[in-house]
Computed example of a mutant assay.
Amino acid sequence: MADEPQIIIACRVVYDVISTLVRLIFEIILAVYNWIVAPAPKDVTGEIILITGAGHGMGREVALRFAKLGATIVCVDINPAGNQETVDMIKKAKGVAHSYEADVTDRAAVFKLAERVTMEVGDVTILMNNAGIMPCKPLLRWSEKEIRSTMDINVNGNLWMLQAFLPSMLERNYGHIVAMSSVAGLMPVPNLVPYCGSKYAVRGIMDTLALELQSEKRDASGLKFTTICPYIVNTGLCHKPKTRFKSLMKVVETDVAADTIVDAVRREYREISIPGDLHYLIRYLLWTLPFPVTSIVNEFLGAGVDPHD
């Protein structure tokens, strides 16, 4: 078969360039429109929502809110007592919830969890990878155990849960994956080197998985992704937050953060920060400037955490 004439190849390239530019412009206009006119929140009645780390803090608060909206909540935690407390709170409010004890760092246990939940409750339609830990100290004071635990829980736990629950979502071309990253996954924060690395990784996992599924032969358009990047939420993980401008980078109470997360999931936002204006400041300003600028801005804001424990 003879090679195609150069003119045909050139025309094809020109067509691809124009087509790509049109698609880019369309997506930018759509993003701006959705920023100005927020999408309507979806109804979560009847959804089966699995939340890791549901026995306390953000996991518990989000579980309570989704339950009030009519979803069935699958509470997963390594602490059975705290997890059962969350379930009891949901049931007391006339909601539907189930308690499962599991260690998200144990891949085999996660796959057994998926089998049990599917058989006893049904196919999970919204998966929220919320479990995480946050030691806070200079890197050279982190122990090997602390580093391994941080990476196992914050990163590998996400991967094992995805491998266990994503297949059923793909089979039905329906599902929503929610991941808890952090503002520490958008910008460097001293005293949190391994933690920052784990939260940068969470964002990378979410973005890359979304892109990977777009290249699948089967239709995966029914799967949605939401990455949450809170600054500091008053859950007890961070004992010594600091900031020069408390109104801009303030410690957020759990009820406010939970309301924001539930709203973001229902509106199917791709990525948000808490407070919301930090996302635009960091991702669309600091990322476009040289690294020394980040250091100067960080020094000016005085934001971060002092070491503890």
Results as ranks from 00 to 15, higher is better:
Thr45Trp: 02
Gly53Trp: 06
Gly57Gln: 06
Val44Thr: 14
Ile36Ser: 09
Leu30Lys: 13
Thr45Arg: 12
Gly46Tyr: 13
Glu47Gln: 13
Met58Cys: 04
Ile28Lys: 12
Trp35Tyr: 13
Ala40His: 08
Val22Tyr: 02
Pro41Ile: 08
Ile7Lys: 12
Ile48Lys: 10
Gln6Cys: 06
Ile9Leu: 15
Ala10Phe: 00
Ser19Ile: 00
Leu30Val: 15
Ile18Gln: 01
Glu27Val: 03
Gly59Tyr: 03
Val37Lys: 13
Thr52Asp: 04
Val14Met: 12
Gly46Leu: 03
Ile36Pro: 00
Val17Thr: 11
His56Pro: 01
Ile36Leu: 15
Ala67Ser: 10
Leu69Ile: 02
Ala38Asn: 12
Ile18Asp: 04
Ile36Met: 08
Gly53Asp: 04
Gly59Leu: 08
Lys68Gly: 04
Thr45Val: 09
Cys11Asn: 15
Phe26Met: 05
Gly70Tyr: 06
Asn34Leu: 08
Ile28Arg: 14
Val37Leu: 10
Ile49His: 02
Gly55Phe: 09
Val17Asn: 06
Leu64Val: 03
Ala38Glu: 15
Leu30Asp: 14
Ile29Asn: 02
Ala71Trp: 03
Asp16Met: 10
Ile36Asp: 00
Ala67His: 08
Phe66Tyr: 05
Lys68Asn: 08
Gly57Ile: 09
Val44Ala: 04
Ile25Val: 13
Ala38Lys: 15
Gly46His: 12
Glu61Asp: 07
Gly55Met: 09
Gly55Pro: 03
Arg65Gln: 12
Ile18Ser: 11
Pro41Thr: 07
Val32Ala: 14
Glu27Gln: 08
Arg65Asp: 02
Tyr15Phe: 14
Ile28Ser: 10
Pro39Lys: 06
Phe26Leu: 14
Ile49Leu: 08
Ala10Lys: 05
Ile8Met: 12
Val44His: 04
Ile8Gln: 15
Met58Asp: 02
Ile7Asp: 14
Gly59Gln: 07
Glu27Ile: 05
Ile25His: 07
Ala71Gly: 13
